[in-house]
């Protein structure tokens, strides 16, 4: 489903974030990206939803070439990719319902359908009771659930997450991981960059370690692998 071929990314300031990366990630996979700070994890994630394009090499998702893709095609790519961030990126003056429904509203889905699907998705992430709350009235974990709901409401084939538990306490982090586990079970491919050692070790999923922009390790049912 995802294929990176000889991908290098050098930022305009000269920072070599990725060097000659080759990767294949199959449909329905759950993949952790680990590695030290500055290794290039976020950069790799950004290549996947075409926030960035590689300096060299090819990125393909579902046999679509993201490098050759025209800018105006990017929105249609993103409708099939959910993105979750460490800092949630919720709109503070919109309710939970509006924040989640927003993702459908702005791609022109009819009102009634927005309503039905938003309610169903809030049910999925366990936030139905908080429908009318504003982000500042929610705990960090709840805010991240809203972000997850917004990312998956359009049933994307791929969900990418950049340190989704980075701002959460361990218990809450586990709640989110269970949610992602369920979403993955329903067939969504998940790529998640993280520093959460306990989570990676416990989940026993594929682990790709990045160091200095290169793939240093890639194992099925791997562990976090760095000493504390």
């Amino acid at each position: 489903m995802i294929q990176l071929t000889n991908v290098s990314k050098i930022y305009p300031n000269g920072a070599r974030a990725l060097v000659d990366v080759n990767l294949k990630i199959g449909k329905g996979n759950f993949v952790f990206l680990v590695g030290p700070s500055g290794a290039g994890k976020s950069t790799l994630i950004k290549l996947l939803y075409r926030e960035e394009t590689p300096t060299r090499g090819q990125v393909q998702i579902n046999s679509k070439n993201l490098v050759r893709m025209k800018d105006r095609e990017v929105p249609y790519l993103r409708r099939n990719i959910g993105v979750i961030f460490q800092d949630f990126k919720l709109l503070p003056n919109k309710t939970v319902f509006e924040n989640v429904g927003f993702a459908l509203e702005v791609i022109g889905v009819a009102k009634r359908e927005v309503r039905n699907r938003t309610l169903a998705t809030l049910e999925l992430v366990g936030l139905k009771a908080k429908e009318t709350a504003y982000p500042h009235e929610l705990s960090g974990g709840e805010q991240q659930r809203v972000c997850v709901a917004r990312a998956v409401i359009n049933n994307p084939a791929l969900l990418v997450a950049d340190e989704p538990t980075g701002n959460l306490d361990p218990d809450t982090a586990w709640d989110i991981m269970e949610l992602l586990y369920d979403i993955n079970k329903r067939g969504t491919t998940i790529v998640m960059a993280t520093h959460a050692r306990a989570i990676v070790n416990k989940m026993q999923k594929r682990v790709i370690a990045i160091e200095n922009g290169r793939v240093a390790r890639d194992e099925e049912k791997g562990g976090y692998g760095y000493d504390a």
Partner: peptide
């Protein structure tokens, strides 16, 4: 700008934005 950022993220077309 925050709203626009999220719109782009969830795939709103440029013309829509």
């Amino acid at each position: 700008r925050r709203e626009i950022q999220i719109m782009k993220l969830v795939g709103a077309s440029n013309s829509f934005i």
